[in-house]
Amino acid sequence: MSSIVQIAIELSFWSPVVLFSIGIPSAFFNTIIFVGIKTFRQSPSVYYVIGQSLSDLIVLLILLIENISSISVSTSSMTCKLMLFFSQLTVPCAMSFLCLSAFDRWACTSRSARIRQLSSNNVARRLFPIPFLFWSLIDIPYLIFCDLIPPTFDCYFTNDIFGEIAIYFLAPIFSVLLPLFVLITFSILTYRNIHHHLIRNHLSMWEQQMTRMIIIQTLLSIFCTLPQFIFVIYSIVTLNKRAMRSFYQISIELLINQCTIFIMGINFISSFYIFFLFSPRLRLTTKKYMKNLWNLKNNQIIPVNITQIVRRKTAIQTHQR
């Protein structure tokens, strides 16, 4: 029994380290390549990819910081409030940008010209700050009703009513259930549009590749979110039976919860690797970018003797005459 708890504890410690190590290059390359290359910025989905990458970066950083005892949420009252606030802010933001990408792909592949107008750079620029502003307003109560609770000084809710709302409504609905519903809905609608061969009529080659990348990432996100969705439903259904659980059942549930959190964490590390595997143009551009960057680092400034060059040039001209 204790071995199960020990495995869960080890998993809770090492999973943020693994996710951070794999996810940081993904977020970094997404931001550098999609921001730095002009032709990639022509797709509206690029704005949502950049927003998702920034959110992913903060999510992974928060998960890693929570493992560091010197920067733990229990260090001070302000640290407790800010860590809970940003953790509840960035995860819904990342899922919101993923949902916006799925919406954009449905709009750009639609039969209706009016719906296709929703897939534009102007619309994407206007929608880009909305997830950050919306979730910042929604999560303000975390700054008010969270603090260190004596005598153990654990970071938790100071208001029982808001604690129940946050645990059983805000966190599961906005971070898991609602994004999963939106992703499944727009994936089905986009598939129907593509199935009718509408995508070939008005989309460029890069937009077609972008659509394929977003669809694959959306499908992966659905499969990664489903285990956490099932566990959340199970926790809500068995809420009244919590006092009757044995130590073995609690240990198993703790281990399953850590596994589902790790699987869901794949959402925050996989975007660039999916784009790199399923987009020949992005793969070629990334290789050229890295090659140019490597050549730039290897370039060295060699001192030149101007007098020798002038003498050689004069000798060549004399020989030609």
Results as ranks from 00 to 15, higher is better:
residue 94 A to H: 00
residue 11 L to V: 08
residue 77 S to V: 07
residue 267 N to P: 09
residue 135 W to V: 03
residue 178 L to N: 00
residue 120 S to P: 15
residue 145 F to W: 13
residue 252 I to R: 03
residue 233 I to M: 10
residue 267 N to C: 15
residue 226 L to M: 10
residue 236 I to K: 08
residue 86 F to H: 05
residue 107 A to K: 05
residue 176 V to W: 02
residue 316 I to N: 09
residue 298 N to W: 11
residue 44 P to N: 01
residue 33 I to S: 01
residue 151 P to C: 11
residue 305 N to S: 13
residue 62 I to T: 07
residue 13 F to I: 08
residue 211 T to Q: 11
residue 148 L to F: 04
residue 55 S to Y: 07
residue 196 H to C: 03
residue 56 D to C: 09
residue 320 Q to D: 02
residue 313 K to W: 09
residue 258 Q to N: 14
residue 113 A to R: 11
residue 197 H to I: 07
residue 126 R to L: 14
residue 25 P to F: 00
residue 287 K to W: 12
residue 197 H to W: 11
residue 118 L to M: 15
residue 11 L to N: 08
residue 206 W to K: 07
residue 297 K to A: 12
residue 109 T to V: 06
residue 39 T to Q: 15
residue 265 G to I: 05
residue 309 I to Y: 10
residue 146 C to V: 09
residue 211 T to S: 09
residue 285 T to G: 05
residue 208 Q to D: 02
residue 182 V to F: 15
residue 196 H to T: 13
residue 163 G to Q: 07
residue 77 S to I: 03
residue 236 I to R: 08
residue 203 L to A: 12
residue 292 N to G: 10
residue 77 S to C: 02
residue 207 E to I: 02
residue 165 I to L: 05
residue 239 L to K: 15
residue 154 D to H: 15
residue 78 M to D: 10
residue 51 G to E: 03
residue 285 T to C: 11
residue 223 F to I: 08
residue 294 W to Q: 12
residue 154 D to E: 08
residue 85 F to C: 03
residue 73 V to I: 00
residue 99 C to M: 10
residue 306 I to R: 08
residue 234 Y to Q: 09
residue 112 S to L: 12
residue 154 D to P: 01
residue 273 Y to A: 03
residue 137 L to T: 09
residue 221 S to K: 07
residue 64 L to G: 04
residue 227 P to G: 04
residue 72 S to Q: 08
residue 74 S to P: 06
residue 184 I to L: 10
residue 32 I to H: 07
residue 277 L to S: 13
residue 273 Y to E: 01
residue 111 R to D: 12
residue 114 R to F: 05
residue 188 I to C: 08
residue 173 I to E: 02
residue 20 F to L: 02
residue 175 S to A: 12
residue 229 F to L: 07
residue 162 F to T: 01
residue 11 L to R: 02
residue 38 K to Y: 07
residue 317 Q to D: 12
